[in-house]
Design a protein around this nucleic acid. Structure first.
Length: 314
DNA sequence: ACCCGTCCGATGCCTGCCTT
DNA sequence: AAGGCAGGCATCGGACGGGT
């Protein structure tokens, strides 16, 4: 369900279909709705003789309750609580909303060292590039409103080192993450007693802030499976070794989600001239080495965001 | 001269609301 | 149910301007 690529108006329309079994919203532009919900599963259909109106078939309600209702209600409650417009004319994507939720959770840290709009955009709206917010005035307004600012500063703060943590009362394990993707679903981690630390942007210095007590719990590293991500893992493993701690790399739960190395906004490339792209063989398990070699051979990478944290730990 | 990125207005899609 | 209007917003395309 990660790839349904729904926007807020789609989610609202599906909710309306659930509540009143019909909608006039134009949602067949979404491939998931058109091909899966209407085409394959036949849970939604056009009203007979009227292509402007969609109706829910039997089975839609059950399906909706299982896969959409909880998410929709969380988003709606969130928007209302933050006094953000929940009008379907706002073109938030589902990921935009999740990112806004993350911004609320980490507001204190973000405001404390507020970056430029470009940096903020590329750090928080991962995979969308640095100009994403610039080109989305509506979304930018929402971000400013949450942060309580009129605009972003022109200049970068001196020491930009955000410390994002999803803490839970009694963590069983600690996972260091290269990207904030997993931190955008904090309840999921807390449910499983997992504490998350963001060490992205090459800020492995953040490790010095983690108490020895936490470091002695089982430590895992979650990252993009590309040269850059794995190289940072190597550096962290070495750094922790010097402190007499150890960390394990989380292996992808699925190999299906491999992407070509030259996909948009992806910058890390394999070095074909070096053995294992120049990575230190000793830091990786046999299984990891096998996957890395395969990725290098096919010139692919795996995005952290597409991996399931709980399954990887399981 | 050519290739870009950027700026900006025009255009059009969609929702929400009001009227018929 | 259908039509009209306005608001929010993305997208397109032409003008502009800097770099090579």
């Amino acid at each position: 369900m990660n790839n349904r690529k729904l926007t807020w108006r789609h989610l609202k329309a599906l909710h309306q279909l659930y509540i009143s079994r019909r909608t006039e919203a134009k949602i067949t532009d979404n491939a998931y709705i058109k091909n899966v919900l209407m085409g394959q599963k036949k849970l939604i259909k056009y009203k007979s003789g009227n292509v402007k109106i969609l109706e829910a078939n039997t089975g839609f309600a059950v399906f909706y309750k299982q896969y959409f209702e909880a998410d929709y209600l969380r988003y709606e409650t969130f928007l209302q609580e933050q006094n953000l417009e929940s009008d379907a004319r706002r073109r938030y994507t589902e990921d935009d909303i999740q990112t806004l939720m993350f911004i609320v959770e980490q507001k204190k840290e973000l405001v404390q060292s507020l970056s430029t709009l470009r940096t903020f955009s590329s750090e928080l709206f991962k995979g969308q590039g640095s100009k994403y917010l610039e080109n989305k005035p509506g979304l930018k307004d929402a971000v400013c409103k949450i942060l309580g600012i009129v605009d972003f500063p022109e200049k970068e703060p001196k020491n930009l080192q955000w410390r994002f943590v999803v803490d839970c009362p009694s963590p069983k394990v600690v996972v260091l993450c290269e990207n904030i993707a997993h931190l955008k679903n904090p309840w999921k981690a807390r449910e499983h007693n997992i504490e998350l630390w963001y060490v992205g942007g090459n800020n492995i210095g953040i490790i010095d802030y983690i108490s020895p007590e936490k470091l002695s719990k089982p430590l895992y590293y979650s990252c993009d499976w590309d040269y850059h991500g794995l190289a940072i893992y190597s550096r962290i493993k070495e750094k922790l070794r010097l402190k007499s701690f150890d960390i394990e790399l989380l292996l992808p739960d699925t190999h299906e989600a491999t992407l070509p190395v030259n996909s948009p906004h992806h910058k890390s490339e394999w070095d074909f001239n070096k053995e294992l792209s120049g990575l230190n063989r000793e830091h990786f398990s046999d299984e990891a080495l096998q996957l890395i070699n395969q990725l290098i051979k096919e010139n692919k990478w795996i995005e952290e965001e597409s991996l399931d944290l709980i399954r990887m730990l399981g």
